[in-house]
């Protein structure tokens, strides 16, 4: 196990360096800024005394979290990075350099995955924190302090969702030659549709478990929960962690056993 730590760290840092300076990160940062911009807009509307505001900061924050962050940003960021982890090395034909070093292939997968989780967190979590502060900061700090628990929960949920989606999209990237279309169908098709179906099928989505522990009652999760019970919080968390572990293990196994023929 100790043998794995160093190569995982090296691969992680190598990947982080590549991801950090990529156009992808710039693009995601821009999208994150738009989300912060929405929080600013919400705050402005809340501040104008001449507008009869029909909502509260927590409602705006809840909507932002449920729709823009969890349903879009997290999926989008992990899809972006996850599918690129192996595919980009294959397209750039640089994977040979990694595969001809005395490092087990699962270590390469794990190192890259950790880099994905790290950089995704660096982009998404500050977006949540800044949005929260923008919406709540004011002379009256009681509300700010009261909802800190919700904020912590949100950060935790987002982190868990990134773990699972990141592992799943890494799996797709290691497995398929063209992972994007399948990833998009999964992210915006399967996850979007199946989680609203009654019965057991909705338990086959990440969205269901995320909605089960979400502190926000947005429209989408309200509809989903109307047709089926929430899974208990602890069970949801454990399921999400197990899902992430399963997807990551599968991705590592595929990387180890698959023969990658580089295009000339």
């Amino acid at each position: 196990m100790r043998n794995l730590v160093k190569p995982v760290k090296t691969i992680g840092l190598l990947t982080l360096d590549t991801l950090f300076w990529s156009k992808k990160t710039l693009f995601i940062a821009a999208v994150s800024l738009v989300i912060v911009g929405l929080a600013v807009l919400g705050r402005l509307i809340l501040s104008f005394s001449w507008i009869r505001v029909p909502f509260t900061p927590e409602q705006v924050f809840g909507t932002l979290m449920a729709t823009a962050v969890i349903h879009f940003l997290v999926t989008f960021v992990t899809l972006f990075y996850g599918t690129a982890l192996i595919s980009e090395e294959l397209e750039g034909r640089t994977i040979t350099y990694l595969f001809t070093r005395p490092v087990p292939k699962p270590a390469i997968m794990i190192g890259k995955y950790l880099a994905l989780v790290w950089i995704s967190s660096m982009l998404v979590i500050p977006t949540i924190l800044v949005s929260y502060l923008v919406l709540y900061l004011g002379p009256d700090t009681t509300r700010l302090m009261r909802d800190v628990g919700t904020l912590g929960k949100d950060v935790g949920i987002v982190f868990l969702a990134m773990l699972v989606y990141g592992a799943f999209f890494s799996l797709l990237g290691a497995w398929l030659k063209h992972p994007i279309l399948v990833g998009l169908i999964y992210a915006f098709g399967w996850e979007g549709i199946i989680s609203y179906l009654p019965g057991f099928t909705r338990k086959l989505t990440v969205t269901h478990y995320v909605q089960s522990i979400s502190p926000h009652a947005d429209t989408a999760s309200a509809i989903a929960m109307m047709i089926g019970e929430r899974t208990p919080a602890l069970e949801s968390v454990i399921t999400l962690v197990l899902m992430a572990a399963f997807f990551l293990a599968s991705a590592s196994l595929i990387l180890r056993e698959k023969e990658y023929v580089l295009e000339q």
Partner: peptide
């Protein structure tokens, strides 16, 4: 191994 392809981490 010195591979044939002219591929690097260009940055």
């Amino acid at each position: 191994f010195c591979p044939e392809q002219d591929s690097f981490y260009e940055r």
